Amino acid sequence: MPPAHRPALSRAGLATLTLLTLVALLTGCSSGPDAAVRGAPTALAAASGTAKSERPAADAPAAPAEVAVPSVGITSSLMELGLNPDRTVQVPPAGEGMTAGWYTGGAVPGDIGAAVIIGHNDTRFGEAVFHDLKKVKEGADITVTDKTGKALHFTVTAKESVAKNAFPTEKVYGPTQDRALRLITCDGDFDAQGHPVDNLIVYATAS
């Protein structure tokens, strides 16, 4: 799945962020036995919360409950993902591979900042929720429905496959004035341990 980092930055310090202590390693999303699903996407937002809006809580959007990418047949409820004890970002358990997760350390979808949704491509149990995400095209709609039932629409602006050891941390998790959404899963060939060597990142902005 997405890469594991140990963020420890303040809100004020993100503007001068250094990545020297962030390790972009991905595990999980493997078809091999007992794939390590604790590896996670890079977590700049976990360090600082800068992906979150400064507006009062009463005005903030509700937490997301479902994500759908109709053009590739993806619909999933969303679990909430936080940090592991080692401060890497959680990913959905392998046994719940058909359910994606929203990283609560980033922005709420629809608010200013980078909202991140993580899903497996494959697990040891077979194809998972984001298996067909690689088929999505620029201009496609992504719909996130919040817990009040409000549907928020995002338009895919780009996608890229990147090596896990060169994950674009700041690009994905860094500050932005857009109402941005990123979907992350695994991609590419398998290494000797049966783990995919790349990540697929889909970028979208509010429609």
Score class of each variant (00 low, 15 high):
1 M>L: 13
1 M>A: 14
3 P>M: 04
3 P>Y: 07
4 A>E: 12
5 H>G: 11
7 P>K: 09
7 P>A: 14
10 S>D: 13
11 R>D: 11
12 A>C: 11
13 G>F: 08
15 A>R: 14
18 T>A: 10
19 L>C: 09
19 L>D: 09
20 L>S: 15
21 T>K: 09
21 T>P: 06
21 T>M: 10
22 L>E: 09
25 L>H: 06
26 L>M: 12
29 C>N: 13
30 S>Q: 02
30 S>H: 01
33 P>E: 01
33 P>R: 00
34 D>I: 00
34 D>V: 00
36 A>K: 00
36 A>F: 05
37 V>A: 09
39 G>I: 01
43 A>V: 00
45 A>P: 00
47 A>P: 00
47 A>M: 06
48 S>I: 05
49 G>Y: 08
50 T>Y: 12
52 K>T: 08
57 A>C: 08
59 D>M: 11
61 P>H: 11
63 A>T: 10
64 P>D: 00
66 E>I: 06
67 V>H: 02
73 G>V: 04
73 G>D: 07
74 I>H: 02
77 S>Y: 01
78 L>A: 02
79 M>P: 01
79 M>S: 06
80 E>T: 03
82 G>E: 00
84 N>E: 06
85 P>Y: 07
89 V>F: 05
91 V>F: 10
91 V>D: 11
93 P>F: 09
93 P>I: 11
95 G>Y: 03
97 G>I: 04
97 G>S: 04
103 Y>P: 00
104 T>K: 03
105 G>I: 02
106 G>A: 13
108 V>E: 01
109 P>H: 01
111 D>I: 03
112 I>P: 01
113 G>K: 05
114 A>M: 05
115 A>E: 04
116 V>G: 01
118 I>F: 14
121 N>A: 08
124 R>A: 09
125 F>G: 08
125 F>C: 06
127 E>I: 04
128 A>R: 04
128 A>P: 07
129 V>T: 08
131 H>W: 06
132 D>H: 10
134 K>L: 11
135 K>L: 15
136 V>Q: 05
137 K>R: 13
138 E>I: 13
139 G>L: 09
143 T>G: 06
144 V>I: 15
149 G>C: 14
155 T>R: 13
156 V>N: 02
158 A>N: 10
159 K>G: 08
162 V>T: 07
166 A>E: 07
167 F>V: 02
169 T>Y: 02
170 E>D: 09
171 K>R: 11
171 K>M: 10
172 V>S: 05
173 Y>H: 07
174 G>E: 09
176 T>Y: 08
178 D>Y: 09
179 R>M: 13
179 R>F: 04
181 L>G: 08
181 L>H: 09
184 I>S: 09
184 I>A: 11
185 T>F: 15
185 T>Y: 15
185 T>G: 14
186 C>G: 15
188 G>C: 14
189 D>L: 15
191 D>N: 15
193 Q>N: 15
194 G>E: 13
195 H>P: 03
196 P>E: 12
196 P>F: 14
197 V>R: 15
198 D>K: 15
199 N>S: 14
200 L>Q: 12
201 I>Y: 04
202 V>P: 02
202 V>K: 03
203 Y>S: 12
